[in-house]
Design a protein around this nucleic acid. Structure first.
Lengths: 114, 114
DNA sequence: TGAATACGTCGGGAGTTCCCGACGCGTCAA
DNA sequence: TTGACGCGTCGGGAACTCCCGACGTATTCA
């Protein structure tokens, strides 16, 4: 049961949708599968990947298995993203200045100033 | 040149690293490739995918091509994430209560397939 | 007890990802 | 011009993803 990278787990739209459904509370596999044009085995395998990424927790209740959302690994994505949002906000002016300067250097256009 | 989903583009660690390097400013391909244990064609193809996801912009300067970071598509990831952060904050106490309750009950795992 | 239900998982096929070496094109320097 | 450089892209192979039907197991109910 090798671990799965969070980014990899989120790369599939079905898996993102599964997490979306689980926001409303725990669900069993058949219930979840009814939301997709997919067979139950496929959904079960997607849940397995989410489980290996620790985004989902399994609760056995009789013959059913309820899957619970665990949003904590999303924090890793959030903090990775933050380093870019900071760049985005702080450097947007700088970025544009640099871009304009380099465009001007190409003798492409000459008026924009800063 | 079909478009590429942002989540898909971020699923690869090399591509995330490429974006990281580009935060410090535009770079050409050979320069970028020198940071990886990968051939230049492979890096070039990763950049192509980032470009199709609009995360990167190409600037031709003589025989070199400088790649610029465009962090805007990351906003899509951020807003998707926010819907879970809200859940996360609102329900964290509930979640932890459930986790603790079931950690106590947890003693079943370790399957032996086939 | 036997039948039905909820589920995991396996075998396997179609498609995709990821990487490489090889080649060709455009650009620069001499 | 010639030759070296920076780059994209193609052919192709290995590995992985995604899905399905089939089967096995555990649980519930009659």
């Amino acid at each position: 049961m090798t671990a799965v990278d969070v980014f990899t787990a989120l790369a599939n739209p079905v898996r993102r949708d599964l997490l979306g459904h689980l926001r409303r509370g725990p669900r069993n596999v058949t219930d979840l599968a009814s939301n997709f044009a997919l067979g139950r085995p496929a959904v079960s395998e997607h849940l397995q990947i989410l489980r290996r990424a620790a985004l989902v927790r399994e609760e056995r209740r009789g013959r059913e298995r309820y899957y619970h959302l665990d949003p904590r690994p999303l924090g890793e994505v959030g903090s990775w993203l933050e380093t870019f949002e900071r760049y985005w906000n702080e450097r947007l002016d700088d970025l544009e200045a640099v871009l304009n300067a380099e465009d001007a250097e190409d003798s492409k256009d000459g008026e924009k100033a800063k």
